[in-house]
Every structure is written in structure tokens, then in C-alpha cells.
Design a protein around this nucleic acid. Structure first.
Lengths: 138, 138
DNA sequence: AGCACATCCTTCGAGTCTCGAAGCATCGCT
DNA sequence: AGCGATGCTTCGAGACTCGAAGGATGTGCT
């Protein structure tokens, strides 16, 4: 059955990538969860709310509060009250946050096991994975 | 660039799968790390040592000791001294461990986002991922 | 306006995970 | 026998995850 092989291989690739990015994370006192949170704040988009981030990271509210505190403590993110809904807090990267995020992304593109694929294979793979994420939306 | 899209999509798929398997894990008082450890003990192969498991899971020795303790506490795994090297401990699934592992694998095959692909797409994807894991071995 | 209810976030406590440093037992080698 | 290497465990500190509970703000209803 190919499905089992695909699930196992995908997991293996994730673990390998996480292992290889580890040293860079340690350098910035980050961990996989905090790095993922940082990654998920795109500076070219409007600042996301805590709620939106929790949905993106598939985590609950207390957990997200904790992760954001870690990023704030490390000077990478700032919290602000959303003027249009004062219950909501929006997250903005500091200049250092933007730098670290950029370093994270560019390093990941170098060390990810997917980097061994050539452009044609990558394009095939991107098409398949896009189909998966679109079709299983939720 | 397709590479970034591939990395992001792969991560998204993993998170989604983990989210969907969560309820089953909770039922057995498992978590993603302990479930992954359980998954990595194939009952049809010779019992792995702690060392081998640590390599498979990309984790260090103290961490693996902790995870295995969790599985032992939950009655899923037993530890035994390897007669051929008395420093080494080998891990064997209990009958309950085999049941839970089987349930885990079969449920994952149902809920994984990859399940939306048809056989031809799956076979294509399996070929690409196998190439990635083989080419980036380490 | 006032009240009920929902939503967004935070705090707290308990359990889990991760890792470096240190230590113990055993193995392989000389 | 002695010595360094290897496999595992213990310990302590920091990080992560979640349910329960609570405070603040928005929404809808009368």
C-alpha cells in the first residue's frame, strides 16, 4: 500500500528537517513550536490575531499565549490591542523578528530534504501537495 | 519558488494529521511523541534497542528513556536486557501494545490528508518521497 | 438603555517533553 | 588487569500542552 509509505516518508522528512534546523533554532533560543509560530507571522500580510494564529498552528488559546510570550520575551514579536475589536490582540514582528524569521526560512530551504529534487520534480510534488491541502481543507 | 510551497504544504499536512489523530491518542493516554515511539516499534521485526530507537526518532538518550518509560507505564512495551550485549535494552510490544499500535496505524491511514489522493497520484507521490528520503539519507 | 450570551484572551495547575551534565554497567582491546 | 568507548539512566532546569476558571469586550434582544 502506497498510502502507508507516503505517510511514513512524509513524517521521516519532517523529522529530518527539524533535526537539521535545530542548531539554528538553538542559536536564537527557539524551539520547534516557537519557530513554527514565528514562521507563521508573514510580515507582508496584516498582523494576525491570537485567534487566527491558534487556528493556523492547530493549538488552543492558553498554548498560544505561552508561545507568543516566549517570542515577546526574546524580542521577536510585539502584542497590540486591535483598535477595531478591543478583545483581540494582533501580533507584529519586530525588526529583529523579521531578520530571524528570514534567516529561518532561507536556512530551511537549504537544509530541507526536499532540496534534493530538481525543478521538474518539485513542481510535480507541489501540485500533488496543493491538491492534498485543498481537498482536505478543514 | 516551488520549494517553499512544498515545505509549507508538507508541514501543514503533518499538523492536520496530528490534529485529527489527537482524539485517539487521548483515548490511550498517548501524545504525539509517545505515539511516534510506539509507531516505530514494528512487531514483525526484531525488537529494537534503545540506541536504534533514538536514532530513528532523532532524539537523545535521556529523552528516549523518558518516552519508553511512558510506554512501559501504560502497559504497551516491555524492556529486556539484550543477552548478546548486556549494556543494551531491547523493546518488545505487549499484546496490548500491538493492538494499540495497529489501531493507531489504521486510523492514521483513514484520517491522513493524503487519503484524498487516488492510487495513481499516491504512487507518483510515493516515488517522489522515496527519492527524497533515499537521496538525503543521514 | 440594560441584560444575557458569545467571543477573545489570560492565568493557573498538572502532566508531558527535551536536553546537558553526571554517573553506572558492560564491552572491546591491549 | 586496565582503559577508553558505548548504552543506558538519573537529575535538574526549561519548555510545551491542555482543561478549568476568570476578566474584558462585542453582539443581540427587549
Amino acid at each position: 500500500m502506497d498510502l502507508l509509505a507516503v505517510v511514513a516518508a512524509a513524517h521521516e522528512i519532517s523529522m529530518r528537517a527539524e533535526d537539521r534546523i535545530g542548531p539554528l533554532l538553538a542559536l536564537h533560543r527557539l524551539t520547534p513550536p516557537t519557530a513554527h509560530a514565528l514562521w507563521s507571522i508573514d510580515p507582508s500580510e496584516p498582523p494576525p490575531s491570537m485567534k487566527l494564529m491558534a487556528d493556523r498552528l492547530y493549538c488552543n488559546a492558553p498554548n498560544l499565549t505561552f508561545l507568543v510570550n516566549q517570542l515577546v520575551d526574546r524580542g521577536l514579536v510585539t502584542r497590540a490591542t486591535d483598535p477595531s475589536d478591543r478583545r483581540s490582540r494582533v501580533l507584529t514582528l519586530t525588526s529583529r523578528g523579521r531578520e530571524v524569521r528570514e534567516e529561518l526560512v532561507s536556512t530551511m530551504l537549504q537544509v530541507t530534504p526536499f532540496a534534493v529534487l530538481d525543478p521538474s520534480e518539485l513542481s510535480q510534488l507541489a501540485a500533488l501537495l496543493t491538491r492534498v491541502t485543498d481537498a482536505s481543507a478543514g
